[in-house]
Design a protein around this nucleic acid. Structure first.
Lengths: 298, 298
DNA sequence: ATAAAGTGATACAATAGCTGTACAATCGGC
DNA sequence: GCCGATTGTACAGCTATTGTATCACTTTAT
């Protein structure tokens, strides 16, 4: 598998789709979102090419381009053979649990090559956000509660792998976001920052620009960062059941919205402008979205 | 002189690439960095010719010249460049300290975009191993001793960025290695695993296959990993001044060489087959090399 | 010694890319 | 047939990329 980064002209000649059209698809439907060079030129990967070819198949079947995204996201399989275009959700469940089992097996023998391969396969079949929610997040949850020494070793290994994979994605994606700037920080002892990474990735998917401060960040340090990095929101994650500095939020610039996630959502703070986020990653981000709706283009 | 060294005109006629263009590629993208005569004339090796031919293939595939480096780097795991110490000039020193200042400034305003850009520039001028040793490692050292709240916040930010950058490199490179398998682990509280990442990267550069267990790994978990992942060496990093489990090394399979690095190098263990590693990252790996010399192809 | 070739720096032109707006063809519903 | 929505494409006004030309020197080789 040769990993290349192709400019739009190459993609156009390989797929037969006019560059203008490719840009229109991206702008209007977000169908393919290639990476960008620092100056904004699009860089497509092989995966994008596959996706475009899938889209062409859909168009050929008479599916309007505006629907293509939903069809793709709902996992119209790569093998375009399904007699029913309807929801193959049961089959999907099997696919996910297959992936999950495969990955857990690979992890238990410390085989990161296989982990990579399974992830690649999942990403070629499903949109990234689904893979995060339905494969990586459950994978992490499953091993976080490790008991035996064996499991804890596997957990440490998997944590490293997950962190690498997720932070690489974060790094790549974060360049082109344009929405409100969110400072995402954790105040716990570091060690397992995967939930934070998943949260940040979800935020990026929704257009936020994120700045991640994982690990243990003291209240003062957090205040300094909130002052100097000029965020438009502060998302604080903690699994502590009480705020470390008593009942007051960290000192933040006037008017900066603060979101509390994890166990921190239970904190009773007498601060205004503070929102508690509950539920899973997606629901938390819904809460953030609600705060900015109408004020910013997300 | 088994290897030929050719001047630029020869390379140009052999590959069909205009000398001016070759110079531009070198200046703009650091694509090929030939040796130089004392007076500065370029001397290309056969390997450079191969590389140029690969580049021509990439161009033919439609990959823009500005992306060729990334693609090549992703494919060719290691460019062994052992002659390091000799060519260090005063001008180089200035360049490095310029990079360092630039990065520290960028970090202090939480500007990861600029961090990326400076890193790209450094990587276009120097081999990766040099960049690790002379830019990333010092950058990390400089901020690890942060005192003020401001500095600690910046440190947390930089730590995240460094971790992402380093682990991405590690992830990419580790696929091709074929040497002895090293299990690299830390037994400290997690938080700052950058030294471990730097160590693992250096190991990869030298051809080892590495398996990294960062974060706090208990002795039992470590034993389990050492048993199940089938390593040919165990490199243990710790900043604790005494081994957590008393004076015995973690139970490892019979005959498995164990290396101790960091403060752990001072541990007095009554175990055989144990080597203490001192000095900087490169010196530590020299110690590991010595252990395997003649037994394996590194 | 003199010509040929190399060096960095700067500049330039041709091509290609970006965003945003506009427009025309097409399609489904009434 | 009419109307609005959909969708591919065109164009304008910029910016970016990239191969090459040129200049003023320096180095090398005959």
């Amino acid at each position: 598998m040769s990993k290349g980064l192709y400019p739009i002209r190459t993609i156009s000649s390989m797929t037969g789709v006019n560059p203008v059209t490719l840009r229109a698809w991206e702008r209007r439907y977000g169908l393919i979102r290639p990476e960008r060079t620092p100056k904004g030129h699009r860089l497509y990967t092989e995966r994008d090419i596959d996706r475009i070819k899938q889209i062409l198949v859909l168009l050929d079947r008479g599916i309007p381009i505006s629907q293509a995204r939903q069809v793709l996201d709902a996992h119209e399989p790569t093998t375009p053979e399904p007699h029913t275009g309807a929801g193959t959700t049961e089959a999907d469940e099997d696919v996910w649990s297959g992936f999950l089992t495969h990955m857990r097996t690979a992890a238990s023998v410390y085989d990161d090559q296989t982990l990579d391969e399974v992830l690649d396969e999942a990403l070629s079949l499903f949109p990234a956000i689904q893979v995060q929610r339905r494969l990586l997040a459950p994978l992490h949850r499953r091993l976080a509660a490790a008991e035996s020494a064996d499991d804890r070793a596997v957990h440490a290994f998997l944590l490293g792998w997950l962190r690498t994979v997720l932070s690489t994605r974060l790094h790549h994606r974060s360049r082109r976001a344009t929405g409100p700037r969110l400072l995402i920080a954790s105040q716990d002892t570091p060690g397992d920052d995967i939930p934070l990474l998943l949260l940040a990735l979800e935020a990026i998917e929704r257009g936020y620009r994120t700045l991640l401060l994982a690990g243990s960040v003291s209240g003062e340090a957090l205040s300094a960062a909130a002052r100097d990095s000029g965020p438009e929101g502060l998302l604080l994650w903690s699994e502590q059941h009480a705020p470390p500095g008593g009942v007051s939020a960290p000192a933040v610039p006037e008017g900066l919205p603060v979101f509390l996630a994890g166990a921190a959502a239970q904190w009773r703070l007498n601060a205004t402008n503070t929102t508690a986020l509950e539920g899973d990653t997606a629901q938390m981000l819904d809460g953030v979205d609600a705060r900015y709706r109408g004020c910013h283009t997300v």
